[in-house]
């Protein structure tokens, strides 16, 4: 075991898969010589050469399209989109091509491409460096969508994603790259070395896609979150001394409905938290699914805590961010209802 932050864990995942499988290649803007703007691909080009770690033009549509063609020709590309906010020029290639190639060709062709991209706010990134677009991809048939909340999961999920034969969108909450973040920007930064999930095995392992994790067992209510909001949810529950059961979704598609519903059926109360905007956000899907399956066990209406339905504002980041206060308000509302 080693102490790693999320950047090191993701780097290790690519390093290990590239060593084990010569068909794995990495491509994206600034990923090669420079090692990526967040340093996630640092050292890979030095180790594996310019043919396997490619700097690319600033053309997300071209990056995704080239990755599809490479995958059809037997490679296993890991494409980096520098910020999730920049992914839209590649959206057609993802939605119409990557996600549907296996289906439209009845399995004759497929493209096992992993698209890594940093997402989420809390880094003073403004409206073009803070978005959480997971719902725009969860709505698409044929691509898996993953978001880790810690270094251990980041490494295991990324290895599983690269080795998966379906395309995967791998969203990296960039506020968590260097340490867990409980939503309070005024507290001193905490490194991953203080967190048990900063302990990462050296070798190859999978965190399976499609499995949520109960990170804290409890009986009073269920909090469903992913990415940065997992840590905010923990802090909010702690602030109210609630016996909350907290679930890290980890895999948005496919969704581990069984784990979510088992918990809500037990607790009877549920709060859903994500950074992305609320209207038609993934929380709406979670709410509907739980309502359909757990209605008779529910003691209170399900509450959602989300980003407000505005672009991510630069100067009002901490009014916008769904922090511990807002999550705690929802927890209190769900606990009061009877």
């Amino acid at each position: 075991m080693a102490q790693m932050n999320m950047i090191q864990a993701l780097n290790a995942a690519m390093d290990i898969t590239m060593t084990r499988d010569p068909s794995v290649v990495v491509l994206g803007e600034d990923v090669g010589y420079f090692g990526g703007v967040f340093r996630v691909t640092d050292g890979l080009q030095r180790k594996y050469g310019v043919h396997r770690v490619l700097d690319t033009p600033i053309a997300e549509g071209g990056i995704i399209a080239a990755s599809i063609g490479m995958a059809v020709n037997g490679l296993r590309p890991v494409a980096e989109i520098q910020f999730a906010d920049y992914i839209y020029p590649g959206y057609d290639q993802i939605v119409s091509e990557l996600a549907r190639l296996r289906y439209r060709s009845a399995g004759a062709f497929s493209a096992p491409v992993t698209i890594r991209t940093p997402c989420g706010g809390g880094i003073r990134g403004g409206q073009t460096h803070s978005q959480s677009p997971e719902a725009l991809f969860a709505h698409v048939c044929g691509i898996k969508v993953v978001m880790p909340s810690n270094p251990y999961d980041a490494k295991g999920l990324l290895i599983a994603s690269i080795e998966d034969d379906d395309p995967v969108l791998f969203l990296e909450p960039k506020r968590l790259y260097n340490g867990p973040f409980d939503g309070d920007p005024n507290k001193p930064a905490v490194p991953w070395s203080t967190h048990p999930k900063g302990e990462v095995p050296d070798g190859h392992y999978h965190v399976p896609l499609g499995k949520a994790e109960v990170i804290r067992e409890g009986n009073a209510l269920t909090i469903i979150a992913y990415g940065t909001m997992v840590h905010v949810a923990e802090a909010a529950a702690r602030s109210l001394s609630l016996d909350a059961e907290i679930i890290d979704v980890r895999s948005i598609v496919p969704l581990d409905v069984e784990t979510l519903c088992r918990s809500v059926a037990k607790t009877g109360r549920c709060v859903i938290a994500h950074e992305a905007t609320r209207f038609s956000g993934f929380g709406a899907e979670l709410t509907a699914t739980i309502q359909e399956r757990c209605f008779w066990q529910l003691e209170a209406p399900i509450q959602r805590v989300c980003g407000y339905d505005t672009p991510y504002p630069h100067a009002f980041e901490w009014e916008y961010f769904p922090g511990t206060q807002r999550v705690a308000r929802a927890l209190a509302a769900v606990m009061e209802a009877r």
Binding site: R52, G61, A65, I68, V72, D92, S96, A108
Partner: peptide, 30 residues
Amino acid sequence: HSVPGRVFSISGNLATQFPQSVGWAMAAAI
């Protein structure tokens, strides 16, 4: 499409296969 004939699946969305063919060729060179 034709796997033995090495003809890629036609999308129906226009032009998308053009940059994909470049990726395929890049892989051939790699």
